[in-house]
Design a protein around this nucleic acid. Structure first.
Lengths: 263, 263
DNA sequence: CGCCTCTTTGAAGAAGGTCAAGCACGGTGG
DNA sequence: CCACCGTGCTTGACCTTCTTCAAAGAGGCG
């Protein structure tokens, strides 16, 4: 129930699980010491709100363990996720004193927080933090642009497959057990949260998950535990041209007006 | 026909129209001199491709005049715009030697290019360029997240209204003639390009533009020249809660399952 | 003046959304 | 240890929005 959080183990950045990927990744020992002076840990339980959009935000942070979401909500309640924060991801914007989005813990979570003002000073004084932050922000922008393609042009089935592949790949990058073909992981999101990510309804998410299951591409145990039978096969359903083309999986709807290019 | 391009006038950064907003905005005179040594201008005609996704890219650049687009294309031809670059916007990613997206001139355009390697060196040596680039990248990320909401949750009419407001506001920021209520500008995009931005088909764009015209919110002259009769009224159609709420403009479809929030 | 491209408009169809039950897993208490 | 309960998930029937296919209209440039 309570967040499994052992701050004692983390007081030393050297043993931090996200040390190599977070905003501090490039820091020299002396810079790290500086960071350690302004850092503190906060833990959240699944479902807890970290901060509401518009609220005063006096810190920035790294996700250490767990998963958080950034969401935007329209006045009538329509909701769109605009960020999915996995371990090592950065929260908050230097130079801005209020939150732009709702930040919510999707799972039990631990964040490594830095008071904002000292962190901003650090950005000006230690280039390695600023450089890493720029790099991470550019990565996030690339991810957001992939996301635009997903929301703008992909079918519901392609969206689901894309999300599963994204999660599977990020899990693998963090060093989980991903055997050759099959990948197993616990979904950090409910169907509704998946829908918010994908620009769909939870019913459509459910239906298309069922489709993938019936096609033998995934198995689902207890709603959350997903086994991807064959990651490459699933990747072929995403519509992306990563390695092997998605040929043989003809696109349901649109098959026209694609003679463009025009050099 | 040919790009109206007067590089002579721009050799001096002091007279550059985007001097205050571009990646060089924070530069001191000596830093600017350094930039001037590695810069060169390129001009493009409307429709020309600046670079193809995947191609080698040995420069980064700022848009000086005109409009460019970043687009992603799926194998079957589905296309989604993922960036709309107006004057002062930045093109290219430091540290990456190839283009991630197709870059196309939507109008006649002039770009101020910097050779990539020297620019990357500059990022490490002159903090003002790196700081400004981080700020601009964060702004782009925010814009991308607004775009995610648009593609994920907005109706076709809301999307059109949103795009018109975005263009109108950016034009105003660059100091065009925006009288109190009415705003006039030339659309820098064809219906098809608007559709690529909005995740719609060009037919739907055309239909909804007609709807806005019939509602008296805009007038259209010669396909491209748009007059926004009342910017605030149009903003109310976007679904955003900027100033005045969008009440009184009930959302067509979804009116349920919005009881969330959960503190 | 005429071609060409871009745009508009119409009619039919499909993907996904909406509303409404019913199901299942996991946790709780008897 | 097992029945109960609640939240989250699945499934069904119907409907709306947007897409698809098709054709005609308008603006711009040669």
């Amino acid at each position: 129930m309570a967040a499994t959080f052992v701050p004692k183990l983390l007081d030393d950045c050297g043993s931090c699980p996200i040390r190599q990927r977070a905003v501090c990744a490039r820091c020299e020992p002396d810079e790290l010491q500086h960071l350690e002076q302004i850092k503190y840990y906060r833990s959240f339980e699944a479902g807890q709100t970290v901060i509401w959009s518009g609220d005063r935000m006096d810190f920035v942070a790294s996700v250490v363990t767990g998963v958080a979401t950034l969401t935007q909500t329209m006045e009538d309640g329509r909701r769109q996720m605009v960020g999915l924060l996995l371990p090592s991801d950065f929260v908050g914007r230097p130079g801005r004193g209020s939150a732009s989005y709702d930040v919510t813990a999707a799972t039990d979570m631990v964040m490594c927080c830095f008071r904002r003002k000292p962190f901003e000073d650090l950005l000006l004084s230690t280039p390695h933090v600023a450089q890493r932050l720029l790099e991470m922000t550019l990565d996030e922008l690339d991810a957001a642009r992939e996301w635009l393609l997903l929301l703008g042009r992909k079918t519901a089935l392609e969206r689901i497959a894309s999300l599963l592949v994204i999660i599977a790949r990020r899990r693998a990058a963090l060093g989980s057990t991903s055997a050759g073909g099959a990948v197993v992981f616990d979904l950090p999101l409910t169907r509704e949260q998946m829908a918010d990510y994908l620009g769909l309804t939870l019913e459509t998410v459910s239906r298309k998950m069922t489709d993938l299951r019936q096609k033998g591409m995934i198995t689902i145990a207890g709603n959350r535990r997903v086994t991807i039978t064959d990651l490459d096969a699933l990747a072929a359903v995403t519509g992306d041209d990563s390695d092997g083309p998605a040929v043989g999986q003809p696109v349901p709807g649109p098959m026209r007006r694609y003679a463009k290019g025009g050099a």
